[in-house]
Amino acid sequence: MTNVLVCVKRVPDASSEVVLTADGQSVDGRFAGFTMSTHEECAVELAALVTAAGGGEATALTLGDAEAVEQLRAALAVGCTAATHVVADPQRFGPADVAREIAAVVRDHEAAGRSYDLILLGNDAADSGDFQVGIRLAYELGRPVVNGVTHVSVADGVVTASGAGTDGYETYRVPVPAVVTILEGGVEPRYPTVPGRMKAKKVAIEERTPAGEPTGPNRVKLALPPPVPSNVQILGKGADAAPAVVDVLEELGVLSR
């Protein structure tokens, strides 16, 4: 039996143009929409794989506003079987605050008899990019933490975590309970099936209020990078532009061989 907690964050979909809120405190996702960070999609997939292999439950956790329930339902549709929602304005919570809130949930659940052998998070959130929540959480709970891996398995009370690292393909083996942060690229997140979605809708999500008052993210304000003036030289339209293109290729000397 391996019980896994996987922490996800509702983030603005940043594949299109980023718009900031009027107060400059956050990205306005109302136009582009919201999603789950890519690293966390892979963490959810790994949670589903680990619990499928060893038995046990995969629980999804988020700290976010009421709408973040969407990301929990998404995780429930692809293999998680329980979910907890700390309902709060995420902009008021810095990485240390989020780590404390996750730790509070873990302690409460464990006091109630639901322990977690493995806690998975994304290596970094697609929006705030703090690169530290998993590590801070590990210190809060006094557990070992492996950072930035793509593969995780659990057997006989040992977590094996691996991925392409600075010194080659690196493998860690740590005893449970442990914290592991995930990078995308090791597993392909599954698409939710229709029965999966139906099942996800029926799961009762535990709602909580924050355990403490946040100290905040130390954010002064957000800004967009200054636009770079365009100096593009249009070579033409459609197939007719081919000679002009090949002129450029010759000028740049990339056709010589």
Binding site: I234, L235, G238, A239, D240, V245, L255
Partner: peptide, 19 residues
Amino acid sequence: TYAVIGDLHEVVPAINAEI
């Protein structure tokens, strides 16, 4: 630096042919 406005499926074969 440079751009061609058009569908790659028309532009790229034309470039290949020109090369």
